[in-house]
Amino acid sequence: MFMRFPAATKTPTPYRPEQRLITSAIWTIHFDLDNDMWLAENRIIDTVRDLEVDVMGFLESDTERIIMGGRDWTQRVGEELNYYVDYGPSPRKHTWGCAMISKFPIKNSTHHLLPSPDGELACAIHATLDVHGRDVDVIISHNGQEENPLDRRLQTTELARIMRESQNPFIFTGYVVTQPHAENYKILFDGGRMNDIDPTDHDRWCQYIGYRGVKRVGYARISRGTITDTEIQAGKFVVPAPGEDISEWQPSYKRVEESHYPEEYHFPKKFHGKGVRGHFYHVFNAPRYFD
């Protein structure tokens, strides 16, 4: 532990501070076990590093129970990649787990057990981050599964309330279990005063990214490789300067080519084509960029 101390105390640094960018992503990691039930830590760490994410939510992340080895794998991710870590609701809360890593200081974090009267418990992290000098709220969440529609509706309603009541710029990355533009989708985005990162993407079921008060630059979907059964979704956003009025900010859904933005705004090139370690841009075969 003493030998690791210098790395563990180094201040995390965001990837693109000059552009005021934040890259946020969500990934369901299935308790750090791959499809053959081997530990996936090394591959997860490599992928997070290659994707250059500033804030990432991990779902199904609770490995601290005895049956999962009584281990906190987020500590290793935080130390090796130099992130602040919020490991989410404790194992005693009996959720599947949600955790967050952040290159930005975590000013406040609240752990939620979402309403679950009819089935499994669901967790959420609502955190306020200091993003380039501006308070930005984020939510990492994992709703219950499709077997309990009452749970999912109440859980989504509670997430919408949290987002609706916040006055800060907001980024949502979560597991909602709904088809695009269905009831729970409308509760989340309309009820939460949030914008879908790409409402024309109809090939989604569980993971979604939403935003408000930041400028969306790009959206990417990256295949899972051999890890779990769920892809990575990532969004790039420009955060307004401190004091800048965001009340009139409206999303543009005009698609543009990657060349529309300087290279600093692009998603990493190494995930094009066949990608690396089985991780590559899929569904669209390339990131989408917006004006």
Rank of each mutant, 00 (worst) to 15 (best):
F2D: 01
F2Y: 04
M3W: 12
P6R: 02
K10C: 00
K10A: 00
P12M: 06
Y15V: 12
Q19V: 04
L21I: 02
I22W: 11
I22C: 04
W27R: 02
D32V: 13
D34P: 04
L39S: 11
A40W: 10
E41V: 14
I44R: 07
T47P: 08
E52R: 04
M56F: 12
L59N: 07
W73C: 01
G78N: 03
D86W: 15
D86N: 07
P91H: 07
P91V: 04
K93N: 01
K93G: 00
T95G: 08
C98D: 10
M100K: 09
I101K: 00
K103H: 03
K103T: 12
I106E: 04
N108K: 12
L113N: 09
L113G: 01
L114Y: 09
T128L: 12
D130F: 14
I140L: 13
N148Q: 08
P149Q: 07
T156W: 08
L159Q: 06
P169R: 14
G174I: 14
Y175A: 08
V177D: 04
T178F: 09
T178A: 09
F189K: 02
G192M: 07
P199H: 12
D201T: 11
D201N: 15
H202E: 07
R204P: 00
R204F: 00
W205C: 06
W205G: 05
C206A: 15
R212K: 08
K215M: 15
G225W: 03
T230L: 15
A241S: 07
D245C: 08
I246V: 11
K254P: 05
E263T: 11
E264V: 08
Y265K: 05
Y265W: 11
H266C: 08
H272F: 13
G273E: 00
G278H: 05
G278I: 06
F280P: 01
Y281F: 08
V283C: 06
N285G: 11
Y289D: 01
F290Q: 03
D291L: 15
